[in-house]
Design a protein around this nucleic acid. Structure first.
Lengths: 331, 331
DNA sequence: TTGAAAGCGCTAACAG
DNA sequence: CTGTTAGCGCTTTCAA
């Protein structure tokens, strides 16, 4: 083991009992300044680190939260996880991050491991499915899981409807007439709602709907499918993509078809990730309130953990459109 | 606590002793098929998850590895962490990921927490400094820490010298005569060595060295500093950047100065991250052997954990140049 | 093949 | 203010 010195060692060296050592470590009062000093000195000298395992076993709760995420290399998820980890750490909680690769079997194993570790709570950013861990609090973040029920499950999500609507409206305002939506046909809930927003905006403008379905989300697929679409003789001058990765691929594809962005076709992304900021042309994208969502998530999780009363176990965070070059009008 | 049913519950329900339950769970033999079936059935029924805390406390070791990383949103680090997590999980280890924001105080707190959790080992990707955790094995990955000593510390790193050399050589071969290196002046060890490679290549070609130092790594800073450099009347037709983020910023800056890439200036990045692949123009970049490094790291860590003999506690992983548009010759 | 029981390091009730 | 001690859930030795 990493360390065989324990409270008993400290107690003996300091000439006190283990109870006293425990008290000073946990600042539980009931000891004199003099005693405290003695104990602290020994702890320092021996570079003692209390065993969290034993503490948790005894206290019947751990200060660790499990975070289950489908793909940490997706910049949007990475941001979410980073902020979660920071905020949790500030509350003296550790974070165990689990990557599922969108694999159900793997996700199950990860969750079992988390349960065995007796984590205090779990945050799930994968949208795969709903879990009934009765004893252990779960908050779903950003991705609405299959089987979700408003009354039973905690969910913090983004206003995808408004996002889809705002993005599409921007294209309409920029003068686009043939506006298609590009999405992955492995449609998760977020995408569905974003598409709803798209429809709503088109309807208001009296325009027709057009769809470009892509396989698994990747820039290559997006480029291929948009080229196909063009080859089939379809007209597009506006393209609402359900995320930034698709938008990047779409622009690549359009350019290969000699359609310049934004001159010939205007494009919007979703997530306002680093891709949208850095790509050339830079991509107008829907920005989510990451900080707000993370804050809400942690608050809700802690509330459930403490059995506090909560106003609502659901929260919808607002979005805004960040305008960049991909939707510039060139008058 | 998440679960108050324990081995005793299972034992009673199954009409056996806790020792037997433990044996079947851990497949330790010494029980009949009949007994096993009984026990497994009860476990299933009660949806029992053994308490890892108690197990670890008793066994005096945990199956968890701590990973300390300076910035998970850096795509290069995200890749590393993802692969580590996958590989560790395949070995039945959990991963606790800690983000330090390059903050020494925070890193210290994180490491203390990991020690208290009695993690079996720690992988550090931050380059901040060397830690002496005597009892607990540490492997430094990708970033050589300050105070590193070949004899005492485990390190898996990339051949930064060759990387810097290859990138610069590419620029030379592409006909560049005024080749500058752009780096962050918060120079970490990797950057220093990449710059060494740059010098080596220039020397071979009999060219002069030029430096553009940027503050904290960011695209904005990179753009600003490169514009400054041009404004001061300096000539550049080749730019070796010590990472992809700087390269992206540099290209932005050059373009704003009406210097097109690669026509007027050729640029190389480092890390071959998604930025290099997606940016327009796409950026030639040095690719590291992520999979190999991760594999070596885990192997080394486990070897140290098991007190196995190891050939070497150091490993240098090869790099290669991935050529893209930013260094294309336009003859 | 099985069970009883000690003990991992810690906290907290209880006694002083 | 301080110490003694039971017990958290598990593994493992020892005995049967």
């Amino acid at each position: 083991m990493s360390n065989s010195i324990n409270m008993k060692t400290i107690a003996e060296k300091a000439g006190v009992s283990v109870a006293t050592v425990s008290r000073v470590i946990n600042k539980n009062g009931r000891f004199s300044d003099e005693t405290e000093e003695k104990v602290r000195k020994v702890i320092e000298e021996l570079n003692y680190h209390p065993n969290t395992l034993a503490k948790s076993l005894k206290e019947n709760h751990t200060k660790v939260i499990g975070v289950v995420v489908s793909d940490i290399t997706n910049p949007h998820f990475a941001r979410l996880v980073l902020e979660l980890e920071n905020m949790l750490f500030a509350h003296s909680y550790s974070t165990v991050i689990c990557n599922t690769n969108e694999n159900e079997e793997l996700e199950k194993r990860h969750i079992d491991t988390l349960i065995s570790q007796r984590v205090s709570g779990i945050i799930i950013i994968s949208g795969l499915k709903v879990y009934d861990l009765n004893e252990i609090p779960v908050v779903y973040l950003d991705q609405r899981p299959k089987g979700y029920q408003m009354k039973n499950h905690c969910l913090i999500e983004t206003d995808n409807l408004d996002g889809g609507y705002l993005a599409t409206k921007k294209l309409i305002e920029a003068g686009c007439k043939n506006i298609a939506v590009m999405y992955s046909f492995e449609k998760d809930y977020s995408q569905k709602v974003r598409i709803k927003g798209y429809k709503k905006a088109l309807k208001e403008a009296g325009l027709e709907e057009h769809y470009i379905a892509v396989g698994k989300i990747s820039t290559d697929k997006a480029a291929t499918f948009v080229k196909d679409y063009i080859d089939k003789g379809n007209k597009v001058d506006g393209l609402m993509c359900t995320n930034d990765i698709l938008a990047v691929g779409a622009i690549k594809g359009l350019q290969e078809k000699q359609l310049s962005v934004p001159e010939s076709v205007k494009v919007t992304g979703f997530d306002d990730s680093i891709l949208a900021q850095l790509y050339y042309p830079s991509i107008s994208s829907i920005q989510q309130s990451i900080d707000r969502m993370v804050k809400k998530t942690v608050e809700l999780l802690f509330a459930v953990m403490n059995n506090d009363k909560v106003d609502s176990i659901y929260n919808l965070s607002p979005v805004k459109l960040v305008e960049r070059d991909s939707t510039k009008t060139t008058k």
